[in-house]
Design a protein around this nucleic acid. Structure first.
Lengths: 119, 119
DNA sequence: TTGACATGCAACCACATGGTTGCATATAAG
DNA sequence: CTTATATGCAACCATGTGGTTGCATGTCAA
């Protein structure tokens, strides 16, 4: 779970996933091509994606082909994000209720970055 | 974008979001209560969530109340998950095509963790 | 068999991250 | 006014992370 989010937190790894979107089943050398870092750095990123189960691997002779694995994202993230999605409307309503019941005028209809006297 | 994923990559921060999910609009002290770390550590985490726009803030006297902001999650993550979702079927098809065109028998109908002679 | 190619492993390094403590400041309460 | 409360800021520290380089190993092609 943390693995998936952590894997996605890196720009390079998202770029690798993007490249696999465009063309699935690429080797390390393929994916390294055009990247501004060493092959080993790319290999490390791919291993992280593999561990997070976002990429599956298939050996073919001396080449290790990388494939997108969309399943864990669909399962795990959807469940998490879904939770918040459901709360989307409720959150706004709750905010109004809570702030109004605290007898303070509403500065906006959404909890924005209203800086107070502090800092 | 990276901010959102990075913010979610930490267990403590997800726990904080969970607590705000249960009860929205809590102060730092509220959220610190029961956590096995210093108040300042919690404050740092909250600031990261604030920066990632996952939490909005509203000052009320000397209290800083924290509110869930589900919008960026909905927008950014959904877009990414959707991308994977769309590629779900395509990935399987692509894999079959590519492996078969490489004149190798298909070991399974999905690119699983088939370990080869390596390692 | 020999050489080129694709990958893996390990040591190392700079910087980011998550945590601490101490102290300062603003607000509420007596 | 004084004191307690809620938060912020800054220095500091251990560990994790993203990158490097060098070398070893497995596989394909002459």
């Amino acid at each position: 779970m943390s693995d998936v989010f952590a894997a996605l937190a890196d720009q390079t790894r998202r770029a690798l996933l993007d490249r696999l979107f465009v063309k699935n089943g690429q080797s390390l050398t393929d994916l390294h091509h055009g990247m501004a870092m060493s092959r080993q750095a790319v290999a490390k990123h791919l291993h992280i994606l593999e561990t997070a189960n976002l990429v599956s691997v298939h050996w073919q002779g001396r080449e290790k082909l990388h494939y997108l694995n969309p399943v864990p994202l669909g399962e795990i993230v959807h469940r998490w994000v879904g939770k918040f999605e459901d709360a989307r409307i409720a959150a706004l309503t709750d905010f109004k209720q809570q702030v109004e019941s605290a007898s303070k005028p509403l500065p906006s209809d959404k909890p924005e970055e209203k800086r107070h006297a502090h800092q």
